[in-house]
Design a protein around this nucleic acid. Structure first.
Lengths: 186, 186
DNA sequence: GCTTATATTGACCGGCGGGTCAATAGCGTG
DNA sequence: CACGCTATTGACCCGCCGGTCAATATAAGC
């Protein structure tokens, strides 16, 4: 994972993977027939880790959006400290080369997050907490800035640019977007 | 550009570039010493195109945010119909391999957009139009969902997932985020 | 139309890295 | 300790593609 994340699929050398794993190159091929298989296995493994955490979060009670959104964005800021950003970068980079992997990621992670948020929005709309509008697009309004922040940090880390503080971003954006969504003053 | 966008830098073959350009492989090397040089030149060219458009937009008058934001997001939705999304995907993918390119993109494009938005926010804060808070992070709140939408479409185009309509997203998000930012009801 | 200058070509080279496999090391068992 | 079985190794193979260059086509000058 580390090697793929640093170099991308194409530029990652299996010899380096082997070296960092503390084995010889041949050993890698005993367990993974091809480079592609290794990549898929590794991506799937990271996916499974984060998916199980998500499942747990989704089983929570039906809190009002004004609580759910700050909690969700806060969690995203924490998750951004793991290797998840690198994996997201990889996914974006290789989505053309591995469309099947993109589909798995969509169905198993992104789709679930999206569903989690949109269904919460629909319930909030039903009980009159927030204004009308397309729930899926609202999900982008809620989550988009965090994704943008994560990618910004990934892409411009080496350029000396000032990087956004994701926890502050989560806090400030949560406050702003909740105010924008609430029905009061509509 | 088309070949790089489809395959990524590593997997792009110069023979295919030459074929699509209607010349022989050798001819490419007459004008671009190496594959890297070609890539940089091509990326720079796309960058210049979009930069000049941006310069023009930045020279506009100091409109209130409630007008500026819908206009900005609407423009982003239009720009998403060009090859810009593919270039953004490439930039994200190759930012580790070409950190200098990432720097150029930051300084010439992203940084300027960010500055355009943050300075508008500061002025709006100064005249009491919107609430206090970190202007840079607000810029992420404003632009982030569009970036997320663009990337979503790029990554999941082939998976049969339902793709967000960027114009609707721009319209709905503009309305929502402006409401969230305005001072009234603070 | 002949000559010189320039642009284009595509067969060829060499290195790199994914993938193979005979040789070797390690380990469980009696 | 001996034997057999499995796990590991790394030298080697080979196809691919970035890059070269002598040969060729095209254009310019007179």
């Amino acid at each position: 994972m580390a090697v793929f994340a640093e170099r991308g699929f194409g530029a990652a050398k299996l010899e380096e993977v082997a070296r960092r794993a503390g084995v010889a190159k041949g050993t890698v091929f005993v367990y993974f027939p091809t480079k592609e298989d290794l990549f898929r296995a590794v991506a799937q493994s990271v996916l499974n880790t984060h998916m199980s955490r998500l499942e747990a979060a989704a089983r929570g009670p039906d809190r009002p959006l004004s609580e759910l959104i700050p909690a969700l964005l806060g969690r995203a800021a924490v998750a951004a400290e793991t290797q998840l950003p690198a994996v997201i970068r990889l996914l974006i980079a290789e989505s053309r080369t591995f469309p099947d992997l993109a589909r798995v990621w969509h169905d198993e992670v992104i789709g679930k997050v999206l569903h989690l948020v949109t269904s919460a929005i629909k319930r909030a709309q039903a009980r009159g907490e927030i204004q009308s509008g397309n729930p899926t697009l609202y999900a982008f309004s809620i989550m988009g800035p965090m994704l943008a922040g994560v990618i910004f940090r990934e892409v411009f880390r080496e350029t000396g640019a000032e990087l956004p503080d994701l926890k502050r971003l989560a806090a400030q954006h949560a406050k702003t977007i909740v105010k924008g969504l609430l029905r009061q003053g509509d």
